[in-house]
Design a binder for these strands. Structure first.
Lengths: 207, 207
DNA sequence: AGCATAACCGGACTTTACCCCGCTTACGTA
DNA sequence: TACGTAAGCGGGGTAAAGTCCGGTTATGCT
């Protein structure tokens, strides 16, 4: 909800969004959610979204820039809510617990988040964009980086380590686990991935 | 080179490819390489590829199924050659060295491979495909899995660990490192990623 | 060799992401 | 409150991905 348009990457909004534009974005996102629920992501077309919203095609594209942009916006939206839990919710996810515990439960929460938003997350990938589309999951990466800073790891490239961990967390879901598995048995997937993350973090962070 | 068409996922070819089809695939791959070198991946269109090859559009699509399929084929091609080095080349990459050393140098070789084929690798991603397009880099994953099996890691989900490591290896390049950085200073990227991989593996595999 | 059949070929056709540009509307200033 | 202007709007236009199907060619069998 904070961003002005698809080019506004910086957080401090340089200029407030015009009222009608904000209204339209809201409406577009809501309509997109409806259509995805009804038809599935692969049948969400830009034209149909525009028509059902009662807006012009041009508007849709100015808002989101590209088809993948819609899904990124949707994901951002969900991620923002999720991130609030993480930043100010109860321990061990929120502050108060030892950083290692927070890291572990963060990963577990994110696995659940990604399983839930799996369809949208896949559609937000875009092979044509030269730069990682909107730089994938920067919030997640930043949070992991922050927690790593509070753990004593000796000399290490913490920024890179955070990137690697983020990839090890997101990758198995987005790229490597078959969609069939996920749809048929999301529970089983979680039962495997959650301990996997736990184990990975323990291995990396032990002295 | 081995696969009959985009639906043939199994390795043992059920039926040999017809001679003209094989010739056309060869020719298409070669032409695609030329055009990418001349124009860049984003300007490689299916129509242009067909015309320049002197073939019909239908042929191109039957061969590769989708635009991303072309890039997957190109990547497969390169990966196969790379994999031979790994399976039968000299140590520490090839067999003969201790598995931990092989794992480390494998990652380093793969980083170089991905930096080199970066453009194609990105284009091989496809957000619309419900299943991880051809299941991304299965060869790499299998090799890592094999090496992990030769290292004493105590009780662990080795298959999942291999997936996580593959993601931690590929992810930073495909998703998180900006394309600008890569193009301007591939050397610097390597200088950072190579030690990063070394460090990650040491952390995970120490007793 | 001759034939049946399955695979392959090509290019016209459809769908859809994305661009363009003249018109309209909201907001800062006087 | 009136005005100038920058931002927003909409829908027709383009190009490229992906589909279809009638015609063609390779291959196995006799």
């Amino acid at each position: 909800m904070g961003r002005v348009n698809q080019f506004d990457v910086s957080w401090g909004a340089p200029r407030p969004e015009r009222a009608d534009a904000a209204r339209n974005r809201q409406h577009l996102i809501a309509t997109a959610r409806e259509m995805i629920a009804e038809l599935g992501q692969e049948r969400l077309t830009m034209d149909a979204l525009a028509e059902r919203s009662g807006l012009g095609k041009g508007t849709v594209f100015r808002r989101f820039g590209t088809r993948a942009g819609i899904f990124q916006a949707l994901l951002d939206d969900g991620e923002r809510a999720f991130q609030e839990q993480v930043l100010s919710g109860p321990p061990p996810l929120g502050p108060g617990a030892p950083p290692l515990d927070r890291l572990i439960s963060y990963g577990q929460a994110r696995v659940r988040f990604l399983v839930e938003h799996q369809e949208i997350a896949r559609a937000a990938l875009d092979g044509r964009q030269p730069i990682p589309s909107g730089s994938q999951s920067p919030l997640s990466q930043a949070h992991i980086r922050m927690l790593l800073g509070q753990i004593d790891l000796g000399p290490a490239d913490l920024d890179l380590l955070a990137i690697q961990l983020t990839a090890a967390l997101d990758g198995p879901l987005l790229l490597y686990v078959s969609a069939t598995d996920l749809n048929r048995a999301p529970d089983q997937v979680e039962r495997r991935l959650l301990p996997g993350w736990h184990d990975l973090v323990r291995r990396i962070c032990r002295p």
